[in-house]
Design a protein around this nucleic acid. Sequence first.
DNA 1: TCATATAGTACGGGAATCATAATATATGGA
DNA 2: TCCATATATTATGATTCCCGTACTATATGA
Lengths: 160, 160
Amino acid sequence: MEQTEPSDARHHRRTGNEIKAALRDLRIQLALLNHQVGGKLALKDVDLDCLDVLARSGPLTPSALARQAGLHPATLTGILDRLEKAGWIARDRARADRRSVTIRVLPDRGMEVFRLYQPMIGAMDDVLAEYNEAELALIADFLRRSTEAGERANGELAQE
Amino acid sequence: MEQTEPSDARHHRRTGNEIKAALRDLRIQLALLNHQVGGKLALKDVDLDCLDVLARSGPLTPSALARQAGLHPATLTGILDRLEKAGWIARDRARADRRSVTIRVLPDRGMEVFRLYQPMIGAMDDVLAEYNEAELALIADFLRRSTEAGERANGELAQE
DNA sequence: TCATATAGTACGGGAATCATAATATATGGA
DNA sequence: TCCATATATTATGATTCCCGTACTATATGA
């Protein structure tokens, strides 16, 4: 057993741990942000999460959304009822398979959401202004890889 | 009004938008990860969030935690009851002010949590291995600044 | 000493989640 | 074609959760 390791490897590991801790803090902060935004829109956290997934991953069926969000299908019925009643989404019955429903985000209330996220968007623009193009590309790539790491980890946990 | 802008500014803005989108995706992925981990520990999402804050920000009183987590004080009583019954935390009555209570995370079940996060930790280690020390430092700094941006945005929203 | 403020919690109403069952539609073989 | 089985979603009911209000205990300051 080595009692020491090269100094650069030690630094690498330590900075890596700092990054993982920073990611934890960032997650908490973003969760809190969503909680506040959701509160002002009279939406549960999970409702806003679903809306977010729908807005990013395009129209989805309830089953697909339930899988992506880790929720019971019956739970989604309740969530979708709320979102539909408040005018956030529409349920379209598919032509091909008339059992299936497609959830579509309505554009109407998009501006409300944007306005509430504006403080964060502005703060991020301030942060991003300090980096040059190469650095931004590095960061963007890191974030994408981290998301993929999250997907892999979720896949492994879903197994057991 | 300019109809065009310098090419590098355009790139900068576009990469910036990619970063903000990537941050959204990452947040969703991390939320899902926590949801799965929480499920395996029989903890609600919000319970795990509180535990996470407590583990990071050290012992806290219920009021301080409620503020940090954006929850009603009475809601926290229920959360703390669950966490206490399951052996995650202890409530200590303070000596100075005997009204106040300090919540402390018990170390006993820490290994369980670590094991469940292991897939993500491992996946992140793989990602981090591809960067040199200077790049890691850049990323760590960006994450800290983004967290601060989130704190500022939360502060602004809390105003209204 | 006493009025007021603060920390935490008990209680109750209304809502959310999820397991189960029900409905409607699709698919494939006899 | 007819029917058994599978699939997508939703209705129902039991349990649990969240939060507004009120209560207890303690602290603070006039």
